[in-house]
Design a protein around this nucleic acid. Structure first.
Lengths: 226, 226
DNA sequence: TCTAAAATTTGATTTAAATCAAGTTTTATC
DNA sequence: GATAAAACTTGATTTAAATCAAATTTTAGA
């Protein structure tokens, strides 16, 4: 089951033939973003695509009442922002760094060039997008049909894998309560209550914003999702 | 706004260079599916990909309690089922014909071949998947944060565009109440009440399973979504 | 066309989660 | 390290939507 949420995106570029990888590395320009800085905004137009070198970025949609629904969290090794370039339309969502991050930029021109030249690259993008899609589909099924308790449990499991660093034992999630609520599609008060219950049941432990999952198997049961 | 839901998928193959199109047309094998017949099922393995010639197919996920969440409805001119082939994994969702449909099949071998050979084809797939993704993202934001009334309104708008046939004036949606409820992430009883309200407000008219949208602009307002 | 089964609608009641409100803790800045 | 602001938690109340129940309509098969 956990398989669904794991996607070792680290070194994704290694899946490419070396010539394509070198071309990409040459045309990418790095930029630093501090926590809470936006990368692009809903309904503006793209001028290129992005690749996460390090850090984390949230992608969300805002509704008319200002509530945000987080759609995906990008981790090191993932491309993003290419959908609007492909459809030649404006951005349908907003992305904001939730940690200090280093993000590479590729211009539309260069992107189109490599897309045309390298079937490996387009396959890589298709694979990534398929992955994002399946995460979103799973999430949607849970968000629209299940209780807040189940929704929070599922999001904790997804985040656990995002925050997991290979070869390091102590994984903890570090995210504001409001981001967590916006992922689970609930409000902060309800989220606080659910986390309280999970702590009481010894499924998680918290220390400020740090959340550690103590009993993953039990959380999977709570999420009612395999 | 409506732009978001429209995607003239008719003749999508015409976007391809003629050589690619001809190759595809040669390797595709047509098959008829009657209403309610499944095309593939969650957690089985793919042996190829599909292209809708005519009809409609729902894609959904089932949870442990048997509730289904409809993720997308495929119309004529759309490819589907390729994500699992790309990620070399089992299907993450189930697809069932909701109308009598004609669906073409392309084997994994042929699919990989054209994917490698034609950058236009992979670009086409990326574009389609991006579109599906944005529809899903919009939907998720609405499903997880908004009232049932808003959710139903949005889904009616999406369906309206799915059922619209170019050059024909009288568009009506034709779908079971339970499919509609499963799209909006609610139960049939609640759905019936919302449709009743919409009828009372003269936003829609119904005749058995046929639903006609009378005031699209007002429905967009109700959906609270632009 | 008739009939049984399935689907849909309507009503009454319960329940999960949002909202409102107030207090407490954590974070960031001087 | 003190202080203000922001973030978070807990409690009380309201509300939207699910559930339970039953009647009515539609659909499909003989």
């Amino acid at each position: 089951m956990i398989k669904k949420f794991t996607f070792n995106s680290q070194n994704i570029l290694n899946e490419l033939p070396s010539c394509d990888r070198e071309f990409l590395e040459n045309i990418m320009v790095d930029k630093k973003y501090r926590k809470n800085q936006p990368i692009f905004t809903e309904s503006t137009l793209p001028s290129g695509i992005f690749y996460m070198q390090s850090g984390k970025v949230k992608k969300y949609k805002m509704d008319n009442d200002g509530r945000e629904q987080i759609i995906y969290i990008y981790n090191a090794g993932e491309f993003f922002g290419y959908s609007s370039v492909l459809s030649e339309s404006s951005y349908g969502d907003t992305t904001v760094a939730i940690e200090n991050s280093v993000i590479s930029f590729i211009t539309i021109k260069d992107f189109n060039e490599i897309l045309k030249a390298s079937s490996s690259f387009s396959r890589l993008l298709l694979k990534s997008l398929s992955h994002e899609f399946s995460v979103l589909a799973n999430l949607m099924a849970v968000l629209s049909q299940r209780t807040v308790r189940e929704r929070v449990a599922l999001n904790l499991l997804i985040l656990h894998n995002k925050y997991k660093v290979d070869n390091k034992p102590n994984t903890y999630i570090m995210l504001s309560r409001s981001d967590l609520a916006n992922m689970a599609g609930t409000v902060v008060e309800t989220l606080a209550r659910v986390l309280h219950d999970f702590k009481h049941d010894k499924l998680i432990s918290t220390d400020g914003r740090k959340i550690e999952l103590l009993k993953i198997e039990r959380l999977i049961q709570v999420a009612n999702f395999y």
